[in-house]
Design a binder for these strands. Structure first.
Lengths: 193, 193
DNA sequence: TGTACATCAGTGAACGCGCGTTCACTGATGTAC
DNA sequence: TGTACATCAGTGAACGCGCGTTCACTGATGTAC
């Protein structure tokens, strides 16, 4: 039963959104086309009316997940600057969220082994994230460097905090990383943190 | 054709070593039992004479890979302190190595979704890595915190550097992270870096 | 505006394939006497 | 030390299953006149 173009476009968006959620929860390899289509309320057969293959959906899903993460982090930045963004990110609630916010912490090592299409999408998201974390500081170059440093630490610490079996050790990692980023920024002039 | 106990023990070690290499190259999900056994010069049928199932081999392989990483980083520490360890880790040659040294950068997000046995092995390796990076500094507590901070940043930066499609951006991430860790440590007294 | 036809979104069955796991089998190793 | 038997490391075929992908089909939507 054919759907109208508008409905089809909505379906496509729903598939991308469902995939963006599912891959952050289960990983890319573990998220099957049938699972992602079912999460969007569809059967798997219609997949190829919308996407060339699994990789193309994944790259779009990463862009969508990245967009949501940027929006979340951007809101924190607007409200409380870099400190608020870091606090929100390096929190136990983010660590324990069933659907992680950040695709890099949730899927980093899988993305590192992915193909060109996926890596290109990831690179674009990463550049936007750097720009978001750099904010509107006067020294663009320095602010960008700080954003790279902060995001590297945030992603590394969150990844380790999620690996670790011991709850105390996990919190220790988040706290040490947060303390470091907070203390570091407060030493430097012209930072909003 | 039955092998002697000694030969069987060597076979087991060879399987673990082959698995440790393969999973860092391809990821855990993508490394099949048949591939790992073949890499050790065996056929897949004999696998269950040595391991209960795939997960148990993976947890042992992670311990083995972690042991090698700790040894490598420990050597750098002994020669040139934390600065040498960080320099070696955040290098383009480590980034581009076909078999990554560090299991956390290579498999971090997969480990975060793994089961108890695997997480326990990973946690043990991580604790040893922290101890190695803390070295023999007088203030144990502070040195441990610094090690956590340094390793979080190293793993996050290496993961991002491997994801990124653009070579300049990739090097920029490694350099910014390295500069930060180097500059930060040089500000603090009593550090060997 | 109405009509005839082409298009195509979505379904559900089917495909070939590789996966983890099981199993019968072989014959050298280990053990009991 | 020798002998008879049990053990078991490793092989290769087989299993059931889920995967990504393909395809015939349905009928509402879109298009041409």
């Amino acid at each position: 039963l054919r759907k109208s173009r508008q409905e089809a476009a909505q379906t496509r968006e729903a598939i991308v959104a469902a995939a963006a959620d599912l891959i952050r929860r289960t990983g890319i390899a573990e998220a099957s086309l049938a699972d992602m289509m079912a999460a969007a309320g569809l059967t798997h057969g219609g997949f190829y009316r919308h996407f060339r293959n699994k990789e193309h959906l994944i790259s779009e899903a990463l862009s969508a997940a990245g967009g949501k993460a940027i929006a979340t982090i951007g809101q924190k930045m607007a409200k409380g600057g870099l400190k608020a963004a870091v606090d929100g990110y390096l929190s136990t609630s983010h660590r324990d969220s069933p659907t992680p916010i950040c695709p890099f912490a949730a899927l980093g090592s899988e993305m590192a082994r992915s193909r060109k299409v996926t890596k290109a999408a990831a690179t674009e998201v990463l550049e936007k994230l750097f720009a978001t974390l750099a904010g509107d500081a006067p020294d663009r170059e320095e602010a960008r460097g700080d954003a790279i440093v902060a995001l590297s630490m945030m992603i590394g610490a969150m990844t380790l905090a999620r690996i670790v079996a011991d709850s105390d050790l996990s919190s220790e990692i988040l706290d040490r990383a947060n303390d470091h980023l907070t203390g570091w920024a407060s030493q430097q002039p012209g930072r909003s943190m």
